[in-house]
Simulated assay, not measured.
Amino acid sequence: MRILVVGGSGLIGAHVVDVLRERGHQVTTVARSAQPGVDHLLDMDSASADELRAVLAGHDGVVYAARTDEQKPLRKPIHPQFRRDIVDPVVRLFTAAREEGLTRGVVMGSYYTYYDRLRPELRLTQRHTYIRCRVEQAQEAREAAGPGLPVAVLELPFVFGRAGDRLPNWAGALDRWARSRSPLLAPVGGTAVTSARAVAVVAADALERGSDEDIPVADENLTWDEMLGRVAAAVGRPRKVRRMPAAAVRASLRLGGAMQALGRKEPGVNPSYLGDVLLAELYISPLTGRSLDGSVEETFPREP
């Protein structure tokens, strides 16, 4: 098959490109900025229908692996901006893909959509604009694609790994904290985690099957203190991670939310309700069974 990977120079996109080529598929890459291995420069926020159809022509499938920062505070109302960043580019892309006759697609989504289905009592789409837009992204991508173009949505948790100088967008602050002499503190609860390589393998499988499923992806389920302890050990600063009282976590997050509200700003994941998410066990089943050790060490290398 011939596959177009949008965001092909990013952490996940680069691994998708590698896995597809290892399996003998032809791959074309699209990115916003010039990087080695990028075939087409295109800003998905402003690309016209004609520009999208031109890069999609002759392909069998497309992978959307562009990244969005859900924690960037924006001035209220924030939903229109998050739609422009998350939903609209995917709708335009899959509309063009349908018109060009593509037969399969993959969207890199978020495991928050998995928990929106699994834990409706958390009211995630009502409380968090980012999660609402991720749900809209999956639904509207499929509507734009139509019945002849199945679209698989990979629901991704924390993703470890490296692609050149590309790292997870959350890794920098955690790396500095783990290497410091500061005490390590974590809330109760936990999260699913995976590697960029594992995501790429699942994406390639979905393309080859022509899947239209929602596919949650995880290698391991970790408590927050286990995850932070793994990072500290990887950088060569192993130490005990202490658990924070749930009341303290909720209070600090609500205070942060109130401070942002005073400035009429809000991130995509609302800190006033984030405690309900952080203190839950955001686990995925079944797991891939792949080891995460190598990806943790890639993301957080030990100092020489």
Rank of each mutant, 00 (worst) to 15 (best):
I86W: 01
A246I: 09
V63Y: 09
R162T: 07
L42Y: 14
T29I: 01
L255N: 04
V193H: 11
D39P: 10
G229W: 08
I12W: 10
R181W: 10
V249Y: 06
A192G: 13
E208H: 09
V27K: 01
S291P: 12
E208T: 03
V202N: 06
R254E: 07
R75V: 02
G148T: 09
A203Y: 11
E22W: 04
P238K: 02
R142I: 00
R98D: 02
T113R: 12
A96R: 12
A248R: 03
A96V: 15
D205F: 08
W170P: 10
N270G: 13
K72S: 05
P168D: 12
A54K: 07
R302P: 07
P147T: 01
R83C: 02
R209M: 02
V17E: 04
L255A: 09
D50I: 03
G24A: 01
A138Q: 12
P216L: 01
T103P: 02
A204E: 06
A196G: 08
D116H: 14
G8I: 13
T288A: 00
L279A: 06
T223S: 13
D69E: 14
A192N: 14
R117L: 07
H79V: 04
E155P: 10
R83K: 01
R84N: 04
Q126S: 11
W177H: 14
A57V: 10
A47E: 08
S285A: 05
L274F: 15
V277Q: 14
R134E: 00
M44Q: 09
R181D: 15
A144F: 10
A206Q: 07
V193R: 07
R166F: 09
V193L: 12
V5R: 10
A49V: 04
A246C: 02
R239I: 00
D276F: 03
L292S: 00
S252H: 07
